[in-house]
Design a protein around this nucleic acid. Structure first.
Lengths: 245, 245
DNA sequence: CGCGAGCTTGATGCCGATCAATGCATGTGG
DNA sequence: CCACATGCATTGATCGGCATCAAGCTCGCG
């Protein structure tokens, strides 16, 4: 963490969409270099969010979207009484803040689960540019649409799956997204607590813990704290799909 | 139904966004008359969907969005094994098909729950036009964003509410939307079966039925088949909010 | 070392699922 | 018009999965 700074050194490239290693996952998908240069002009600012700190809160006025550069976030909504629900976990290349467009206010909290960095994308500038660049417009629409589809998947999970099936679906989703980012498909480190997993899946933390233990007993996982090794991915798939009915 | 046709009569106005009574709820929100005329050019086609029939199916290739003109729809997703989940109910002025933008295929089924009519909005033309009309672009973004926020609300419901709370939230949501459309706030006719309500709320139809009976016993509702009269809306609000914790 | 946050594990209880029977409205054909 | 079938809804009895309550455990950290 607090290692001494390396000898003074200039960043060889301006950090920008055009040479970001996430550009195949993020907003720039499908854009030419020329177009990317235009995008670079709006995504100049970056912001660091220490672990545990909010990127934004429900109720704050909305002005920008955020692309996760490094780190990991959760988003959660709350009802008037204290009920809370984690609505998603976001990792590198994913967009935060889409909820704010509809009412010009954020409707959920976004909290960093580890020290993180995001790119700030001023919404109105993005809208302006996407009126010029149809590829950007198209990609932005796709991202919003996929968020809707993702939410429908969570609704299916919450509405019709039992505890272990939810856990299996959750783990497969995480490994899938990590694989897309070039990480191993069967080693993962959970960035969130059992309670946060439970909130996301509509379960209590004890139930999450028991599921982990069960999976370990069954030889499906190796669980050491938040270090998870997937030993039998097909078994997880079977839980999500073939198991019932 | 099969009443004799009225004497031959020309529609006094071309049926179009610019003189649609839903224009304050639908895509045209915030657009000038001049802009509306441009929108009219793409929303020429209408389509009738008889009760029980699909507007589109999951897997079909995506080409257009649909605005409900009259009638009532449900959307549902299914997993590979037979699990089904109703993800929403759509009424006049609401948009269907947003899920298809992300992958160019629809990801859910949209089924008419009564004889319905929709306006067909070819997506690519809409995208083109919204690059010219920033008000249209803005409204389209808002609609997508609100859909995401709505889904988050359902996730909260599914993840953290008990049966009667879910039912109360569902009924309040319906009456709220009917009120927006100028209908009475306490008389409603359910367009869907108990089973469909249950699927949406993550409950079994028996549980839905019992909740209706309970509400009736408690003097909160008057239930006759699918005819519902809300007698005590505050009680429903208390169930959703103040009840627990 | 001791403290606390996060996690595991066990015992018990409750809510809603499941199973089953009946009721009721609508439609169809004799 | 009745007899019967069909789809949807209600209601009761029982069961089971997960929540809840309650200890203890583990690990990181001041």
């Amino acid at each position: 963490m607090n290692a001494p700074l390396p000898p003074l050194r200039i960043e060889p490239f301006k950090v920008a969409c055009s040479n970001c290693n996430l550009r195949e996952l993020c907003l720039p998908v499908g854009m030419s270099n020329e177009q990317l240069e235009r995008l670079d002009l709006l995504v100049g600012i970056r912001r660091s969010v220490p672990r545990g700190e909010p990127l934004f809160h429900a109720g704050e006025s909305f002005g920008a979207l955020y692309a996760v550069r490094t780190g990991f976030f959760k988003t959660c909504v709350a009802s008037e009484d204290g009920r809370e629900q984690v609505t998603g976990f976001q990792m590198a290349g994913e967009l935060l803040g889409l909820d704010g467009i509809g009412t010009d206010r954020h409707t959920c909290d976004a909290i960093a689960l580890e020290d993180s960095q995001v790119c700030v994308i001023p919404y109105h500038q993005l809208a302006d540019l996407s009126r010029e660049l149809s590829d950007l417009q198209r990609q932005f629409h796709k991202i919003m649409s996929r968020e809707i589809v993702r939410d429908h998947g969570v609704m299916l999970l919450l509405g019709s799956m039992r505890a272990e099936e939810r856990m299996a679906a959750f783990l497969l989703n995480l490994t899938q997204r990590l694989r897309t980012r070039g990480f191993s498909a069967n080693e993962l480190v959970l960035r969130m607590t059992r309670e946060e997993i439970g909130s996301y899946l509509g379960l209590k933390l004890e139930t999450v813990s028991r599921a982990f233990s069960k999976f370990q007993d069954d030889g499906i996982l190796e669980v050491r704290q938040r270090q998870i090794r997937v030993l039998d991915a097909p078994a997880l798939h079977k839980l999500v799909n073939g198991a019932n009915r």
